[in-house]
Amino acid sequence: MSAASEAIIYSKKICMLGTFGVGKTSLVRRFVHRLFDDTYLSTIGVQIYKKEIADLNSAKGRPLGVNLVIWDLANIESLTPATRTHFNGASAAIVVFDLTRPETFDLKQIHLRTFLEVNPGAQVIFVGNKTDLMAEGPDEKALVAIAGEYDAHHFLTSAKDGSNVDEMFQALAANVIS
């Protein structure tokens, strides 16, 4: 019994934000199901995924795990009261940009401010996705500037070749726990 009572598990809700086609769904699918698909099926409404990350931090000698419950939201240009409720109770947002499309870096479009109004104190991570398409290496400047503004972490990822995807989610999990 004694081992049992020391287990700690947290469940955290995470929202994926970003303009259409930036790769929100692809990142989640890569992370949760280890899959990638070139075809584009735009998300309507919301899809929910879950992944347990075990043994995040055994510093205290206890098993510590996080259930990430990931809400993959459709990008909706104008928020309605109904779509706004999707933000409720989230611990973090992953804001995804498409490195090949500078216009996706417009934060107004993705309602980050509303998200933070609904969830003051939530963590935010900024992600520049599709590094595999950047022949001369990704241009990080815009990403760094935005992340700096919010005092947040940023990551360069590719859902296609998988680079940095696990690292990004792991870092987020560690962040929402501490």
Binding site: S11, I48, V69, H86, A90
Partner: peptide, 29 residues
């Protein structure tokens, strides 16, 4: 608020689907 599953009981030995947490989110949505 968050749709996070706090607890779940099932009458079936193998009644649990892989992702009750997802059901919690779906119902909440």
């Amino acid at each position: 608020q968050s749709g996070i599953l706090l607890n779940h009981v099932s009458s079936q030995a193998n009644g649990e689907s892989s992702d009750q947490e997802i059901i919690g989110g779906m119902l909440t949505a």
